[in-house]
Design a protein around this nucleic acid. Sequence first.
DNA 1: GTTCGTTGCCTTTTT
DNA 2: GGCAACGAAC
Length: 674
Amino acid sequence: MAREYKLKPKQNAGTQSGIDYRAELNDQQYAAVTSRPGHALVIAGAGSGKTRALTYRVAYLLDQEVPAKSILLLTFTNKASREMLERVKELIPQDTSDLWGGTFHSICNRILRRHADELGFTRNFSILDTDDQKSLMKQLIASAKIETKNRRFPKPDVLLSIFSLSENTKTSIEDIIDANYPYFEEWLDEIILLKRNYTSKKLETNCMDFDDLLLLALKLLKQDEDLRQLYQRKFRYVLVDEYQDTNATQCELIDLFVGKKNSLMVVGDDAQSIYSWRGADMGNILTFHGRYPDACIYKIETNYRSRPEILELSNAAIKANVSQIPKELRASREKGSMIPAVIPLSDPRAQADFVTQRIQDLIDEGIEPNEIAVLYRAHYQSMEVQMELTSRDIPFQITSGLRFFEQAHIKDVSAFIRFVVNRRDEISFKRMAGMLPGIGPKSADNLWRAWVALPISKQEEPPLAFSEYLLEFKVPKKASAHWEQLCYTLDELVTRDGFQMPSEMILSITGGVYDDYMRESFDNFEQRKQDIQQLMQYARGYTDINEFLSQLSLMSTADGDPKANRKEEKNEDAVTLSSIHQAKGLEWKVVFLIWLADGMFPIKKIIETENNDQLEEERRLFYVALTRAKDELYLTYPTLNPRSYTGEILQTPSRFFDDFSQDLVEEWQVHSGW
DNA sequence: GTTCGTTGCCTTTTT
DNA sequence: GGCAACGAAC
C-alpha cells in the first residue's frame, strides 16, 4: 500500500495581524453570514466550517466595536467556546474576557449563582451529577416503601431518565411512560409521587441537578421581568453552535435571551443530530423560520475537511435516512491516495492487533499521533485497543465514560467541601460519613437526622466550628475515633471570616482523613493519590469556592481534564480514543471506526426496538463518525465475539454497510503473519 | 439491626 | 469491570 504523505508542519491559518474576513473564506457566503445584521440560521454539512463561521462573526462584531460583554456564545462544551475565543484573539487583538461563553449549563449556573434566592435556593447550592442523583433517588425509593417484591419497579436511573425526558421535552410523565415505558404503566402513581418527592428534596437540600440548572434559570427569567430585561439588554448578540442538539428548554432560553431586539445566529446540521435521547429536537431548526421570520437562512454544502472519497461514502451512508433536509456535500479538497477501507477481522483481539499495527505504521510514515483517532459506539468497546496500545508503547489519550471529576475518589474529597459550603447537602454529608468504618447507610442517615435537628444546619452564615456540634453525635464504637478526626478536619475548612482556599481545603481533607481511607480502600492507592494531587494543583487556580465546585460539576471530559491540561503532560503526541458522541465537532487525518458489527453499531437495543427514528439517529451517529476523517478512514469489525456471556457468537457486519455501494470502499484482507 | 464481603448478572450515548 | 442481591459476621 504505497502512500504519499507529504505532511507540512501544522500551522494556524489566519494568525497574521490585520483582519480580512474574506482572506481564508473559500466561500463568499461566510462573509455574508458573519457580517449581516439581524438573525441568521446556517444549515451546513459536516466539515463545512460552521464553527468557523461563528468564530468569524464574533471577531467581526468585536472589530465593529461591539463590546465583548454584550456577546453571548453558547457552545456544546466549554472547551469549544475556549477554543473559539482563542481563535478570535488570533484574528483580532481584543480582550474577550467579558464575553459570556460556554455551555448552556455553565451560563445558567452563572445566572443562578447570582439570583438563586428568588427561587428558594441559596447561592451556595450544590450541583448533583448523575451519580448523586442516583443515590438520592435510591434513598427516596427506599423511604417511599414501595412494595416491589412481586412486580419490578423501575431502577433509579430509569426513573431519572423518565423525569429528565419529561422535563426536557415538556411532556407529562404519563405520556412519556405511555410512549416509551408502557410496561411501567401500573406504577404511574408511584412514579409521579417520587417525582414530587425528588423535586422537593432538591429544594430542601439546596441542590440542583443538570436539568434544574436550565429549567430554573428559565423559570427565573420568565417570572422576573426586570431580570429578563436586564439580560436582554446585556446580550445584544447571541450565537449558538450545534443548534440541532438543543432541546425544548434550551430553545426557549435562547428565544428569551434574544427577545425582540437582539441579534441571533445559530448554526447546525440536522444530519448530525445525535442527542434526541436527551431531549434534543431537530424541530427547533425546522421551526426556526417561523419564530424568526426575518432571519436569513444559509445552506453551506461545501466540505473543507475530507477527501472526496470519504465524503462520497458519508453522503451515501446518510442518504438512507428518510427524515432529513437533503444536502449534497461537495468536497473542496483534491482526491487522496486511498478510498475508505473495510477490514473484517476474526475477533476483537485481531481487530485491536490490526488497529494498533496500522497506527504504528502510520506513525512510522510520519503522521503525528494526535492526527489519529479510534472511534467507537460505546466506551467498553475500546478495551482491547487500549490494552494493545499499552503493550506496544503507543501513547494514547482516552475520553473515558467517567469524567475526571466523576471518579469516586475525587467525588469523595469534594463531598467534604460541598457539605461545608452547603450545610443542607444531604447527599454529600452521607457520602462523607459513609466512608468511616462501621458507618453504613443507616448510621449515616441517623447522623444526618441529628444534624438537621440543629437550627445551625439551616443557616448560611457565618462559617462555624463544626466539631462543636458534631462531636456530640452518637456514632458506632468502631467509628468514634474516625468521627472525631472528621469533625476537626471540617473545622479546618473554614476560617473566621469565610472559607479556606480550595487547594488548602483539599490538603486538609487528605491529611485529616482521606489518605487513610484511600490507602485501605483502594489497591491502586498511588494512582488515586496522584489524581488528588492533580485536583489540588487545579484548585490553585481558584479562590472562590463556589466557582471551583461549579467547575468540578460542569466540566466534561471533552473540556479536558486537568491531567490533560497540565503543560508538561499535555499529550501532543498521543492517539485519541473516543466515543463518537464525544468526537463531535472534532477532526483527524486518520480515523479508525471499530466494532462495526450489527448489534454493536447499531447497538442491539435499538435494533430490537424496531423504532425507525432511533435507527435513523444511530445512522446519523455513523455519519458523524465517518465525517471526522480528513484523509484516511478504516472501518473494522470482528466476525466473532467470544466475550459475549452467551458464549461465542458469530457477528454479521453492520447493516449500515448495506446503505452504500461497495464500490465506495475497498475491502482489506488481513492475514495473521505468524 | 447494620455492616461488609462474595457471587452472579449485564454493559449506549452526556451536560 | 461495576452494581444489585444475598448471606455471614459484628
